[in-house]
Design a protein around this nucleic acid. Structure first.
Length: 220
DNA sequence: ATCCCGAGGG
DNA sequence: CCCTCTGGAT
C-alpha cells in the first residue's frame, strides 16, 4: 500500500494525530498498584480481555500482593483464582515461577531491562514492553498485541503478521515519544471502534485514512 | 505448527 | 458453530 519508508512515516503521523485527538488520555486498563502487580496482570491478560483480568486481580493481589507471598502460594491456590481467565494451569505456573525467580535472582525487585524481563517465566516481548513503558516510563519498544497487529496491518503501517517484525516496522516509523501512547490508544481503539468481529467504520476517526475503505463494504 | 483454556458475541 | 479476547512456551 505505502511503498516507501517516507510514505509510511506520513501515514503514521496521520494515525498518531487522529489517535491523540480521539483518545487524549492513553492509559493502561489493567488495574494495579505496583510494577509487580502490573507484570502479574499482564501475564494474565494473554488471550483474555482486560476486564476479566480486572475481575480476578483484586482477590489475587489482596492475598498475594508481592513476589514473596506469591512465590509461597500453592499451585492450587493460584489456579482457583485465575481459573475464569482460561489457560489457568499455565498462567498459575507462570505467575508462581515469575515470583520465585524475582525472589531468587532479583532480590524481589523487578529488573528494568527487556533482556532480563524476558527471562522471567511467561514473559515475552509484549509483556516486557508493557511493564517497561507503563510502570517505568522506559520506551524500549512498541507493544504489539492482537489489536496493534490487526489495526497496524489495516492502516498499511506494516505488512507483516510476525509480532517481532511488526514491532521493528513500527519502531522505524513512530517517534519514540509516541511508542507507549500508540499501543495504549490502538488497544483502546480496537476495543471500542475497530472491533475485530464487527468494526464500527462509520464512527471511526480514521475512516478517511484507512486503505480498507473502498476495498470492501463499509461496516456500520 | 501446536498447545494451553474459558467465556462471550454474532 | 466459529472467531476473538492486550501471548508465550514447546
Amino acid at each position: 500500500m505505502f511503498d516507501t519508508l517516507d510514505a509510511r512515516k506520513r501515514q503514521a503521523r496521520k494515525v498518531v494525530t487522529r489517535l491523540r485527538k480521539t483518545y487524549p488520555v492513553a492509559e493502561c486498563a489493567l488495574h494495579h498498584d505496583s510494577p509487580f502487580q502490573l507484570l502479574a496482570a499482564t501475564i494474565l491478560s494473554a488471550q483474555c480481555t482486560d476486564e476479566r483480568v480486572n475481575s480476578v486481580t483484586p482477590t489475587l493481589f489482596s492475598r498475594f500482593p508481592d513476589p514473596e507471598s506469591l512465590a509461597s502460594a500453592t499451585q492450587e491456590q493460584v489456579e482457583e483464582i485465575v481459573k475464569p481467565l482460561g489457560f489457568f494451569r499455565a498462567k498459575a505456573t507462570n505467575l508462581r515461577g515469575m515470583a520465585q525467580t524475582l525472589v531468587d535472582r532479583h532480590d524481589g525487585v523487578l529488573p528494568q531491562s527487556l533482556d532480563e524481563l524476558v527471562k522471567l517465566p511467561g514473559v515475552g516481548r509484549k509483556t516486557a514492553n508493557v511493564v517497561l513503558g507503563t510502570a517505568f516510563g522506559i520506551p524500549s519498544g512498541v507493544v504489539v498485541d492482537t489489536h496493534v497487529r490487526r489495526i497496524s496491518n489495516l492502516l498499511g503501517l506494516t505488512e507483516s503478521q510476525n509480532p517481532e517484525i511488526i514491532e521493528r516496522d513500527l519502531v522505524a516509523i513512530l517517534p519514540k515519544k509516541e511508542w507507549i501512547n500508540y499501543s495504549h490508544r490502538m488497544i483502546h481503539h480496537g476495543r471500542q471502534i475497530c472491533i475485530a468481529r464487527r468494526p464500527k467504520c462509520l464512527e471511526c476517526p480514521m475512516l478517511k485514512i484507512c486503505p480498507r475503505v473502498g476495498l470492501s463494504p463499509l461496516e456500520s
